[in-house]
């Protein structure tokens, strides 16, 4: 009469945890979208390309430096190089694209980011090469068994996923602090609320846009580092960004915690659906499940779970 078969529960927990861990990785990419949208109202289609470029820069310089320097120094230098590159991209985007398009419609800006996508994808692969590169940033990647006291035999976990989750949590914490408590963070939120009012109190829009693109670039490096470690640095990283779209629709386009929770929901949801609903639907639903969830959210709650409601006094 056992309602909970311990083996089944252990299996459920295992699927759930692995789903949550991969969800955090989606969230990392989604964060980049949210940051830029929040501060400039631009839906940045180029976020995926930024992840790709960041990953390529990181892996190529790391592989080259590793041969000559101790690993930790090589890693540090490679990360700095990637950071500098993303900063340069942010500067160029602000200077040559956004500044020319001030006060154009959201659609025009969105199209401009599609253009940026093509430039970044092309240039990135031209400069750094277009093969699949194996990235090892020194994170452990063995499988371990956790919760052995609770379940017979424990549940199987990948330590790489665990470390990635910790990294993502640290980044989110840092961003939340930055937005809530620093002068620049407050200025970013002010710009997100009302461009011209922010300008009227002397907040320079061009600098704010530069800053968010830099931050989004740094988040892209983090995403590239963990995704690259998992699946290798390759062109298909661009499609990881596609997975981030349902995440931000579920979580809300303007919310940092929303991006995280959306990522967790989508990650866990698609793994659980694959395992428990998949067989009756013919399998392979992992690939489209997230989009269906996003569609339902759009119908029921278009601003997402944590998106800003539009405040309007009458």
């Amino acid at each position: 009469m056992a309602v909970f078969d311990p083996v089944k529960v252990a299996f459920f927990v295992e699927v759930l945890v692995s789903g949550l861990l991969s969800g955090i990785l989606y969230a990392l990419v989604a964060l980049g979208f949210v940051l830029i949208f929040k501060a400039s109202g631009v839906f940045n289609f180029a976020q995926g390309a930024m992840v790709l470029v960041a990953g390529l820069a990181l892996v190529r310089t790391l592989n080259w430096l590793e041969a000559h320097l101790p690993f930790w120094l090589a890693l540090l230098l490679a990360l700095s190089f990637a950071g500098a590159l993303m900063t340069g991209i942010a500067w160029a985007v602000e200077r040559f694209v956004l500044r020319k398009l001030v006060n154009q419609t959201a659609l025009a800006l969105f199209m401009a980011t599609i253009g940026i996508t093509f430039v970044l994808e092309g240039l990135g692969q031209q400069i750094f090469g277009a093969q699949v590169y194996k990235l090892d940033i020194g994170l452990p990647r063995d499988n371990i068994f956790a919760l052995e006291s609770l379940f017979d035999g424990g549940i199987l976990l990948n330590t790489l996923d665990l470390w990635s989750a910790l990294l993502a949590a640290a980044i989110v914490g840092a961003l939340a602090f930055f937005f809530q408590w620093t002068r620049t963070g407050r200025a970013l939120r002010a710009v997100a609320d009302d461009h011209s009012a922010a300008q009227s109190v002397g907040i320079p829009l061009t600098r704010v846009w530069f800053i968010v693109w830099v931050v989004a670039g740094l988040v892209a490096i983090a995403a590239a580092a963990v995704w690259g470690s998992k699946v290798g640095v390759q062109f298909s990283l661009v499609y990881v960004a596609l997975k981030a779209l349902p995440v931000i629709i579920v979580g809300g386009l303007t919310s940092v915690p929303g991006a995280i929770l959306g990522g967790l929901l989508i990650g866990a949801g698609e793994k659980l659906a694959e395992v428990y609903l998949g067989p009756s639907l013919g399998g392979g639903i992992e690939h489209w499940f997230a989009y269906v969830v996003a569609l339902v959210v759009l119908l029921v709650r278009p601003q997402g779970l944590f998106g800003d409601r539009i405040i309007e006094r009458i």
Binding site: R186, D193, D194, A197
Partner: peptide
């Protein structure tokens, strides 16, 4: 044109 999603104090600080 106050920043609607910021508190009054945060508005003043901007």
């Amino acid at each position: 044109r106050c920043f609607g999603h910021l508190t009054i104090e945060e508005n003043l600080l901007t």
